[in-house]
Measured scan of single mutants.
Amino acid sequence: SLSVDNKKFWATVESSEHSFEVPIYAETLDEALELAEWQYVPAGFEVTRVRPCVAP
C-alpha cells in the first residue's frame, strides 16, 4: 500500500522574543526536524527542539 504512517511531533520554534511549539507530521524524528527547519528557518525562526508527541 502507499499509505504513509505519519506521526505527530512537537517542534519548539524560537524567535528573538518568543518561543512556541508547533505540531509537525512526519514519519521519523529526522524528517520532522527537516520539515520544521524548512518551514520556519526562512521566516527567521530557530528550531531548537523536536520531540515525539506522547499520547496521554
Rank of each mutant, 00 (worst) to 15 (best):
14 E>A: 08
52 P>N: 05
18 H>E: 11
48 T>Q: 04
28 T>K: 03
5 D>N: 14
41 V>K: 14
4 V>D: 06
45 F>Q: 01
44 G>A: 03
6 N>E: 07
34 E>L: 13
14 E>S: 10
25 Y>R: 04
3 S>C: 15
33 L>P: 00
53 C>R: 01
15 S>P: 01
23 P>I: 15
51 R>C: 07
35 L>P: 01
2 L>F: 13
10 W>V: 08
53 C>W: 06
17 E>K: 10
11 A>Q: 01
12 T>E: 02
13 V>T: 01
16 S>Q: 11
36 A>T: 04
46 E>Y: 15
47 V>M: 00
42 P>M: 07
35 L>S: 05
31 E>D: 06
12 T>I: 05
51 R>Y: 13
43 A>P: 05
19 S>F: 07
52 P>Y: 12
15 S>C: 12
51 R>A: 06
50 V>I: 13
52 P>H: 08
18 H>G: 12
52 P>M: 09
22 V>K: 02
16 S>P: 09
3 S>L: 07
43 A>K: 14
14 E>C: 07
1 S>I: 11
41 V>E: 06
54 V>F: 12
13 V>W: 02
49 R>G: 15
26 A>P: 02
22 V>R: 02
31 E>S: 06
11 A>P: 01
53 C>Y: 06
12 T>Y: 08
4 V>S: 12
25 Y>P: 02
6 N>G: 10
3 S>E: 07
3 S>Y: 09
27 E>K: 13
16 S>H: 10
53 C>A: 09
38 W>G: 13
34 E>H: 11
32 A>I: 02
11 A>G: 03
29 L>P: 05
46 E>F: 08
5 D>V: 15
44 G>L: 03
17 E>V: 10
45 F>H: 03
17 E>C: 09
15 S>Y: 06
20 F>S: 02
17 E>Y: 13
11 A>E: 01
54 V>G: 07
24 I>Y: 02
25 Y>C: 06
17 E>F: 12
50 V>S: 00
23 P>M: 15
53 C>P: 04
28 T>Y: 03
15 S>R: 10
2 L>A: 09
20 F>I: 05
54 V>R: 07
47 V>C: 04
13 V>R: 00
12 T>R: 08
8 K>H: 09
21 E>L: 07
6 N>C: 15
43 A>C: 14
45 F>M: 06
55 A>F: 12
12 T>V: 05
